[in-house]
Structure formats: C-alpha cells, structure tokens
Design a binder for these strands. Structure first.
Length: 430
RNA sequence: GCCCAGGUAGUGUAGUGGCCUAUCAUGAUUGCCUGUCACGCAAUCGACUCGGAUUCGAAUUCCGACCUGGGCGCCA
C-alpha cells in the first residue's frame, strides 16, 4: 500500500512510497535520493555494499524527476530530513524523466514566469506553487460552504450569449452555428433574472471572459467570478454578506493551510476584521487628490495609483460606497433623495479592487431610462427586461474576483500566479 | 493600444566595436568519494531571437520584424 510521504514517521516500520526523484546525492559507497510527492519529501538512503543488484541498477539508471516506487524499512535518524529515512528493498522506476528539464523544479536557479507557464505541469511540482493552488482550493471550499450554509441556491448560467451584459467591455465573438454569439463577460443579467424566478438567494462561481487588451499584473482575459444576488436585500445587506464571507474564507485558510502558508513563507497571515470601513466615493477622491501627482476629480474612475494611495491610507479591506451614478452600470440603483449618486460599492484590498456590487434597479421603467442614458439600446436587452414587468423583487448583489482574492490573500505579485493556465493577450497555450 | 526595459547554453545570468575560441551558476555525461542535506572534487558537453544595414571587424551600433517583462490606458 502506497503511503503519502508526510505520513511516514520514524516509527512507521516498513513503507511503500511513490514519488518524483527530487534530488540525488551520490557519495560513492552511499547515495541519497530525495523523493517528493505532494505531501512532502523523504530521503531514501542506499548503502551500496548492502543493497541488492536490482536496487543498485535502478538507482544508477534513474534521472531526476522520474517517478519511482520504493519499498523498504524506515529508520529513525536525526541526520535525515523529517528525522527518518527509507532504506530500500525495492526501487522501481515507473516513469523516466527526460533531461534536461525545461525548468529547474528544485529552484536552485530561478525561472521567468513565462518559462514557468510554458511548462506549468513542472512548475506546479514546486512545493510553493502547489501550495498556492491548495490555498485556492481551500478558499473556494470555504466560499461554497458559506453559501450552502446560508441558504443560497447554486446556479449555473450560460457562458454563450447573444449580447453584451453592460456595454463598455469588449467581448470575444464566437461562431454559433449561423449566428454570431459571445462569451459572457458576467452572469449579471442571468442572476438578476433568477430574482424574478423567486430563488431569493443565488450564487454562481464560474468563468467570465473579457476581450480587453489590457496588459497588467492584475487583469486576465478569462477569470473566475464569484457572484451572488439576494432578493429583498439592499446594498448594506450584501456588503455585510461580503465582508462576512471574506473573514470566513481567510479564517478557513488560516486554520486548514498551515503547511501551505509555511511553504509560502507567510508567517503573519492575518484574518481581516469586519466590519470593513465604508468610505464614500467623494472622500476617496479627496484622499487621492492629496496624495497623488496625477489630477483626479469627482466623477473620474479611480486609477491604479489612486487605488494604491487610498489603500495605503485605509490599511486594510474597505468599501468605497455612494458612487456617482454616471460612472456605474445602468442596473445600479440611484439614491431616491439624490439620484446623482447610487447604491453601488466596491470592495477594496489596499492593493486593488476585489469586488463590485450594488442595490439594483428593480423598476422596469427606471431601468429602461437608465439603459438609454448610457447610450445603450433597450431593444437588445429585451430578454433581460421582460422579467421586470412581471413582479421583480427589490434585490442587490455583487461579483468577486476569485483570482484577485487569492492574489491579495497570499500577496502574489502577479495574478497569473493564482491561475493554473492563465489566458491573457499573449497566452492561449497551454 | 501607448511608454519604458529587455531577448546570450535546458534554466537564470555576465559581457556596450577587435582582448569572445563568450563569463558565472545551475544542469547533463564520465570518473573519484560511506552521512549528504544547494554534498564535494576533476574532466567534458551545451548559447549570442530572426532579417537587413554600417564596418576591415558586430553578441555589442542602426533599421525592421517577432517575442518577453514592467508601468499606463482600456476594463470590473
């Protein structure tokens, strides 16, 4: 029976392990092989005078990063990593690795991100890369659990659509039989339609596609969006859900990923404390005006430089609330007493935006009016507008970028580090 | 899309007109080595993105293409 390497202790007795040959140190009469699986590393020690012919032959033939099965007795020994080593009775090569390798798994020599992504399967053998995706997995698990435990219905909506969700962003056109279709930029319209269906609380975690030619460390052309929509809720309520979810997710990662965080050399993993400050847009602009060179004024989008300046001031997660209606999508609900601002918000990490959401317009006529104001044609949104004529409840929701959440949580320098196979302007393979 | 910086062995780098038969590390191959843990020692192998131009001479200068990184813009 194969054992995970981590489970082999000084008192294990005999063990079978299967893993990749991480390093080889041949001292002459004595040779050390480090074997790695996703749980850890164990030293296999061969005393050449005592080992069988078959073990010696396999050990001589094997190359680094080959897959081998080793059975033998476990010896407690202080000098070995983990306080134990395996003395092989059998040493079998299951799959030889070619050499040279496209990159150095052991990380004696660094590799550029581009080189790493070209050989992502090898890159991901590195413990610190594995750790990122184990943390991502744990975070997504926590998020799914949170929704399931709080009465949300998990929905799946189409990624092939006929028209843009919001205007503005560029879409990827695709051939749909004899028609043109697009990859969806957001589940926004569909999750809103499920409010009219009476689902009350829905969530969807799925891919979104944007054909923007952006070339930055925080944008992807294919990303994972965590979306919710809640009936009879306003923006305050969904902000509370969002901050609660963030705290819950951080706490789960902190509790369940101690080894991974150690691998990533994150010693001071802090769970943020809710409630997060609510910073009105107007005040955010005022902070930015004081701190950055570039002119920024009320009514502008918040630039990256402004984001960072305000983030430095706030020091942790925070919301920017009460945005000018003009710079938010048509479905954001304007305040009744001052329609020039709306019930929209962004959740910010000091480094960047993580999420945006709003209380939505649920009145058909107001929605049509707002669509027109944005210079869009209500005719192309007919499928979306119809539900608003037959009893659409008031509702609110948000979308949260999964990759940015992982990126900021682990302080990764590039969002591509949080995606196995990133899609950007230059990368379509692998 | 714009601006800046780059493209040299499998990987990461040094080299800004001749001293380059191109540096260093890692790697691979071979040999030696019984406690390594970035093992050590010795030998060997392996590279100037492509096309054009300038020049007696180009990895190095110029032009073009392609590719990469960072910043901005666009975008949530």
């Amino acid at each position: 029976m194969r054992r995970p390497i981590q489970s082999v202790t000084p008192t294990t007795g005999t063990a079978e392990v299967i893993g990749w040959v991480h390093e080889v140190r041949d001292l002459g009469g004595l040779a050390f092989f480090l074997l790695r699986d996703r749980t850890g590393i164990i030293q296999v020690t061969i005393v050449k005078k005592k080992a069988s012919e078959a073990v010696l032959a396999a050990a001589k033939a094997v190359s680094r990063e080959s897959v081998v099965r080793v059975t033998g007795t476990v010896k407690a020994i202080d000098k070995a990593p983990g306080g134990r080593e395996l003395v092989p009775e059998t040493f079998e090569i299951l799959s030889m690795s070619e050499s040279p390798m496209p990159l150095d798994v052991v990380e004696k020599v660094p590799a550029d991100l581009d080189t790493r992504l070209d050989s992502r399967f090898l890159d991901a053998r590195r413990p610190r890369v594995t750790a990122v995706f184990q943390v991502r997995s744990a975070a997504m698990h926590a998020i799914n659990n949170y929704f399931e435990n709080n009465g949300f219905i998990n929905i799946t909506t189409p990624k092939i659509v006929a028209a843009a969700t919001e205007g503005g962003t560029e879409l990827f056109p695709i051939a749909y039989f004899d028609r043109e279709a697009f990859l969806n930029q957001s589940p926004q319209l569909y999750k809103q339609m499920m409010m009219a269906a009476g689902f009350e609380k829905v969530f969807e975690i799925g891919p979104i596609f944007r054909a923007e030619e952006h070339n930055t460390t925080k944008h992807l052309n294919e990303a994972t969006s965590i979306d919710i929509e809640v009936s009879f809720a306003d923006h305050h309520e969904v902000m509370r859900i969002l901050e609660d979810l963030i705290v819950h997710t951080y706490r789960h990662v902190k509790d369940s990923c101690t080894d991974q965080l150690a691998n990533l050399e994150i010693a001071d993993f802090e769970v943020p404390r809710a409630p997060f400050p609510r910073l009105p847009y107007a005040e955010a602009i005022a902070i930015a005006q004081k701190k950055i060179e570039d002119p920024i004024k009320y009514g502008d989008d918040i630039s990256s430089a402004a984001e960072r300046a305000i983030g430095a001031d706030m020091g942790g997660h925070y919301f920017i609330v009460d945005w000018p209606t003009e710079i938010r999508p048509y479905y954001a609900m304007p305040y009744e007493n001052d329609p020039s601002i709306c019930k929209a918000f962004d959740l910010m990490h000091p480094r960047m935006e993580l999420s945006s959401g709003a209380a939505r317009v649920h009145q058909h006529d107001l929605l049509v009016q707002q669509i027109k104001k944005k210079g869009l044609n209500p005719g192309s949104f007919e499928f979306y507008l119809r539900p608003f004529r037959y009893g659409m409840p008031p509702h609110a929701g948000w979308g949260l970028g999964a990759e940015r959440l992982v990126m900021t949580m682990l302080n990764l320098s590039n969002v591509r580090e949080a995606v196995l196979f990133p899609r950007d302007m230059h990368r379509l393979v692998p």
